[in-house]
Design a protein around this nucleic acid. Structure first.
Lengths: 341, 341
DNA sequence: GGGCTTTACGCAAACGCTTGCGCGGATAAC
DNA sequence: GTTATCCGCGCAAGCGTTTGCGTAAAGCCC
């Protein structure tokens, strides 16, 4: 017969043989099943302990069709926002006895699809996903749905209605941000927004517009520019904003990294930060506190908490506490954190 | 019999039945086994395609005793160094068809042990580990060895000889760093080092001493202080260094975060950075480029490359290309990156 | 003491897949 | 025409665990 790679790990079969009882009895004894006598239980447990027995989870997973594993798909692990989110996800997954399988898409749609495929093959119980900024096709998630694998999206959420999602209401944060700038006297406020298809970009834009309307100010579409979040893209966006006839005195940037790049560009153009031009941003990255010119304020998006919330939602889907087809979009409030008054 | 939770996913059994052939034939056909006729292969593949068949990996894992999964244990996912490292690990694992299971210890030894335990139960093929800064007991890794699960340590490596490890030679980097400061005229150089039991701390210390010796300068043990890497610990260390009789004009800090905290402390003490006091650090964190007072130089530790190297090493252990008991310590050279001349 | 329930355990199937081996039939070699 | 060779496929075991059901033995009540 086939060569068995004896891993040396003892099995319940082994225990059963040594004790002259059946494997089912051993299994039940180890699970404290009521129908097993106290003496047998004790003997089984003692021997298990002695042999250093450890349940073969792969066998259990296979048998039960459940892996107690959740897949996480993110664009980029090394981005601060996502690494905090992961941290939140891993923590709550861990305390619910789930483990976490990881994949990064690097914002590449093809790789995203492959990772989802691989997770499906791994038979993860569910997924937590933040889509890449270029992803426009959602077939791979549709496949997950057909395989009955629940997915919770967070932060970068596809623009669909029939999904589970956790995200931060950036509209309100944006309103706070623009309010803040208006109160400081700024009237021409630019915005470096992200890729158009991101829900987050839309929320920022509408927040921006609503804030202006609240103050009975006219909205000038020229002032919002969509960028690709790279340093070069940010430079181009800044160049554009500074080239407008109306003099831009403040800019709302997509996130703190964009803000840092924008600051660098402004410095190159000999502008004085917080005087000639003021920046307000998103993410409230801790390191920005150490920077030379941190944004005057930043919208905190609570990545760790978003991770927790997404995981909790997924867990309640997995436990059947929440019906799979009852799509909910948990929205967390963002909050403007003011660094410089 | 037991209720089967029909996941709807077709199995080879199903295919076999529909085609009136045996499961073994189907299995072999899908694997392009030479002993299966071309016609049958085609028929099987066509039907598999049509039914959207997908191999149940949990079954394969179980049957083969291999999971194509590697476990990663790190102190803190949200630390820039580690998130870069993860990124490198995930990338190389991915391109070798391995997936990645994740756990963070938060520098807590108990949690570290639990995670290792969980990974062992998950039957990961191998592990990549960076130990917590408080970990002093290595029993959990000994258990992995007994279970024949190879482990590659990286960055934070336990002080043992019979392990596989990838790390950065901080001694050479430290020599470069101290050289740099000496050439700038500094003669009293402090060092805020990490916890004593970390190998990295020892390397930093010996590098420091060797650099002085190279320049025929006497080594004053008072100038090296071990800290715990928290902001408070850094403050205390700075307070101590600044209280010495000999006036410290430069400080080598354990990493960029410590450097940032130290800078903040110095500012509070009304010291002028790069004049009254100069900092040199480790990690070369990208954000430090944006900070008001980046360290004058930083020792790059190549986290992404360390992650890659560790993964490659683990893979060659798993493929049997490298014997399990041939313990090697791959050492990558660190390199001083000078920001401010 | 007969019928009942309870206690404590064993039997065997099932989860989906891989693989060593056996075997019938076609083909090639002599 | 006989024997050796090879092709194409099926049989069945086995991976470790769980679990529905069957069943002895023991205990209970009247």
């Amino acid at each position: 017969m086939r060569k068995v790679v004896s891993s040396g790990q003892p099995t319940i079969k082994e225990i059963a043989k040594r004790l002259n009882i059946s494997v089912s009895t051993v299994s039940r004894a180890l699970h404290d099943h009521h129908s097993i006598g106290l003496r047998t239980k004790a003997r089984v447990k003692a021997l298990a302990e002695e042999l250093n027995y450890e349940r073969n989870q792969t066998a259990v997973y296979f048998q039960q069709g459940k892996t107690f594993t959740i897949g996480i798909l993110l664009p980029e692990l090394s981005e601060a926002f996502f690494s905090s989110a992961i941290s939140g996800i891993e923590d709550t997954a861990y305390s619910n006895n789930y483990t976490v399988l990881l994949g990064q898409s690097h914002d590449d749609e093809a790789r995203e699809k492959q990772i989802i495929q691989s997770m499906k093959q791994h038979r993860v119980d569910g997924c937590i996903v933040s889509i890449g900024k270029n992803t426009r096709n959602y077939d791979h998630f549709e496949m997950l749905r057909q395989a009955r694998i629940p997915v919770v999206f967070f932060d970068r959420v596809p623009d669909l209605h029939d999904i589970h999602a956790v995200s931060c209401n950036l509209e309100s944060g944006t309103i706070q941000a623009v309010d803040f700038l208006l109160k400081k006297g700024h009237r021409v406020i630019g915005m470096i927004n992200g890729p158009e298809q991101l829900v987050a970009s839309k929320e920022r834009a509408t927040g921006y517009i609503k804030a202006l309307r609240k103050h009975r100010l006219k909205y000038d579409p020229e002032l919002i520019v969509n960028a690709d979040l790279t340093a070069a893209g940010t430079d181009a966006a800044m160049e554009y904003l500074l080239s407008l006839k109306r003099k831009v005195t403040a800019v709302v940037t997509f996130n703190d990294y964009v803000a840092m790049d924008a600051v660098q560009y402004a410095l190159k153009r000999k502008l004085e930060i917080n005087k000639d031009i003021t920046f307000v941003s998103y993410a409230n990255t801790p390191v920005s506190g150490y920077t030379a010119f941190p944004p005057a304020a930043s919208v905190e998006q609570f990545p760790y908490e978003q991770g927790q919330a997404a995981t909790n939602m997924l867990l309640s889907l997995l436990n059947g506490e929440h019906p799979l087809n009852d799509y909910t979009n948990t929205i967390m409030e963002s909050r403007l954190v003011i660094h410089d008054r």
